[in-house]
């Protein structure tokens, strides 16, 4: 399998040439908008979320991820826009010159809080640290809808050796569907099925993953914000009470398989690999891996 393949080599090295030209991105106008009384300039095409980041304002997001097309369904990022009848989603609304935006008005706080209460009253958020932090910030109370409020509770789906789907933890943020679909993997093993409160993530006819189109890239796990999708090793360690992120190291390195050069983060506990992920800002992967990269490291366990 050696594949060192070279054209006949010149005896004399090729001289250094000036750096290659890279087409410049189309010049974009700067627009000025006002957020919470502060003026800020951002490029045309930027979102309100981009602008709030520039001002250091922390906007909660759940369904948003830099590498995915905004679906703006969770609505925790809503802000008040002067002249708009309703609140608008910061993650996807593009800025327009002269916008006046408030990110912390009573109206905004109420909607964000109620949205979080809606989620936490219907979904098990025990492994969703980000969402729990938002709840604390907005003083959201999941129990206010009473003990008989409908939930999405259901047994976890364990149908393969690599990862577990526990949809009682699913907030339907669509990220896994996007990662499995057009935004990354283009395998389309899962989609949103059903409607309304019972809308859910599913394979066709709820068939087990092992019959589905799934290629076990685990890119859905990589984007899941609530732990509804989890590697089986992590799932089992959590069940056994041995999963301890405070004792884990994270090391950036490169996948040992093909020559694409995917950046991986190796999560190790007690000197053993327990999980592999990829940094979302890695230029090659954008956080995505294939089955070998994400799960193929178990040979290290045999290497003793």
């Amino acid at each position: 399998m050696s594949e060192q393949l070279q054209a006949p080599s010149p005896l004399i090295p090729v001289p250094r040439a000036p750096a290659p030209e890279i087409p410049a991105a189309a010049a974009r106008d700067e627009l000025e908008i006002t957020i919470d009384g502060k003026r800020v300039k951002v490029c045309e095409g930027a979102t309100i979320l981009d602008a709030t980041k520039k001002l250091g304002i922390e906007t909660p997001t759940l369904c948003f991820l830099e590498t995915l097309t905004p679906v703006n369904v969770c609505r925790v990022c809503v802000v008040e826009l002067e002249g708009s009848r309703t609140l608008v989603p910061a993650c996807s609304r593009k800025v327009e010159a002269g916008m006046v935006i408030r990110t912390d008005s009573e109206r905004v706080r109420l909607s964000r809080r109620v949205v979080l209460e809606f989620l936490a009253s219907s979904v098990d958020v025990s492994t969703a640290p980000q969402l729990r932090a938002y709840m604390k910030r907005y003083k959201a109370r999941a129990e206010k809808f009473g003990p008989r409020a409908a939930t999405v509770a259901q047994p976890p789906k364990i149908d393969n050796e690599l990862y577990v789907r526990d949809y009682s933890k699913c907030i339907l943020c669509y990220k896994c569907v996007e990662a499995c679909g057009v935004d990354a993997q283009n395998t389309f093993a899962i989609g949103v099925a059903g409607r309304g409160f019972h809308a859910h993530i599913a394979t066709e006819f709820e068939i087990p993953l092992t019959n589905s189109a799934c290629v076990y890239c685990g890119n859905c796990i990589g984007v899941c914000p609530t732990g509804a999708l989890m590697g089986k090793i992590e799932y089992e360690m959590r069940a056994a009470g041995t999963w301890d992120e405070s004792r884990q190291t994270r090391t950036e390195t490169i996948c040992p398989y093909c020559g694409v050069g995917c950046g991986v983060t190796v999560h190790a506990q007690n000197g053993q690999i327990v999980k592999v992920s990829s940094p979302i800002d890695h230029s090659v992967t954008q956080g995505n891996l294939c089955i070998k990269g994400r799960f193929g490291w178990q040979f290290m366990q045999d290497h003793e």
Binding site: P256, V260, G261, G263, V266, W297, H303, E304
Partner: peptide
Amino acid sequence: AGWCETEGTVTSSERRVQRVRAAVPLPD
């Protein structure tokens, strides 16, 4: 295992030289 037990670099198909790092200790 070069990719997770040692320090060094690898080069990808787009000529990108990247660091590999020791993430776990070497077995006995």
